[in-house]
Design a protein around this nucleic acid. Sequence first.
DNA 1: GTCTATAGAAGGATAGAC
DNA 2: GTCTATCCTTCTATAGAC
Lengths: 191, 191
Amino acid sequence: MAGNTKERLLDSSGELFRRQGYMGTGVKQILAEAGAPFGSLYHHFPGGKSDLGAETVRRSGFLYGLLLGEFAGPEVELAGGIRAFFAGAAGTLRETDYADACPIATVALEVSSSDEEMRQACADVFNAWIEGGTARFELAGIPHARARTLVIQMLAALEGAFVLSRALRSTEPVELAGEASVASIEAALAA
Amino acid sequence: MAGNTKERLLDSSGELFRRQGYMGTGVKQILAEAGAPFGSLYHHFPGGKSDLGAETVRRSGFLYGLLLGEFAGPEVELAGGIRAFFAGAAGTLRETDYADACPIATVALEVSSSDEEMRQACADVFNAWIEGGTARFELAGIPHARARTLVIQMLAALEGAFVLSRALRSTEPVELAGEASVASIEAALAA
DNA sequence: GTCTATAGAAGGATAGAC
DNA sequence: GTCTATCCTTCTATAGAC
């Protein structure tokens, strides 16, 4: 049960960070959401909020990377998998009233110039996505350098589309970013 | 001098929001930065922080739109202007230690699911950028629907590249996003 | 009508009861 | 070793002195 509490804390903070960011989420809110008593936070995360925050970012980022892998894994055709992923992201936005987009983007922007430990956690996640994506694109026959470029452009398109879609409350940006990414990938596959 | 204080407050909050976001910036910090006494905030912005916040977003967004227009205005060749804008954004990131990117993106992600007034201010800015950009692209001979699509894809690429570049402390994402955007625009111009 | 002092709530963190 | 009660700080906002 003790290990369960730690997982619930990470789950709750992950959900709240995604919607409200790091600065906008209080530890009391996280504890209430997790149904955990106050002291348990400092039992499981001696470093307090920043400790929990860094581990939340790494965990949420890892899980989101897995989700991307489920849509565009080696067993499916690459361009079709990416197309499905963007379509799924647009659907999730609609279903959650534009709340659930990238789990770490808000935090990344908030901490990049003020909290080096948290910034590093975000950077580690993005680098893992880039490396994992590059390997997947190479498996489809795209040369390494081109694969890496395409992945970074795709992730940028996705993250920026999330910013626009959430603010505009429209899935149009995510859909258009998906189309652009798929087109680039198909061009690279045809080359 | 009174009007000057209001402008200084907007300037200070704009700078701080860009680096730390809305939630991470306290009104006392804004006042200290502007060299203004505490009461002046509520004199110029009766609604308090959210009042100042919304006006800051609209003003910062308007000014950033002007900057974009300076780089890619009607008097310069479109693709070259866009290329120069992304190069300038990368240069600014390097010069400011990856602090100065989009003035409203952090705020937009923070407030999109929690503060409707602020979210609307961000949406108004993004819509103005989209409309202004679409008009500029049409002037270069690109049909309306295609122009609008290209602008949204370009803005998404820019915003997402800022997220990655700030977290990774590398201008690579911004540079690659610029290349992708320029290539799309050149393809549309050639069609 | 400019500014200071303070209120009242919420923030993160800790000490210690059990 | 789980949880509660409390501490100190910081937050936004207001009241009122001058």
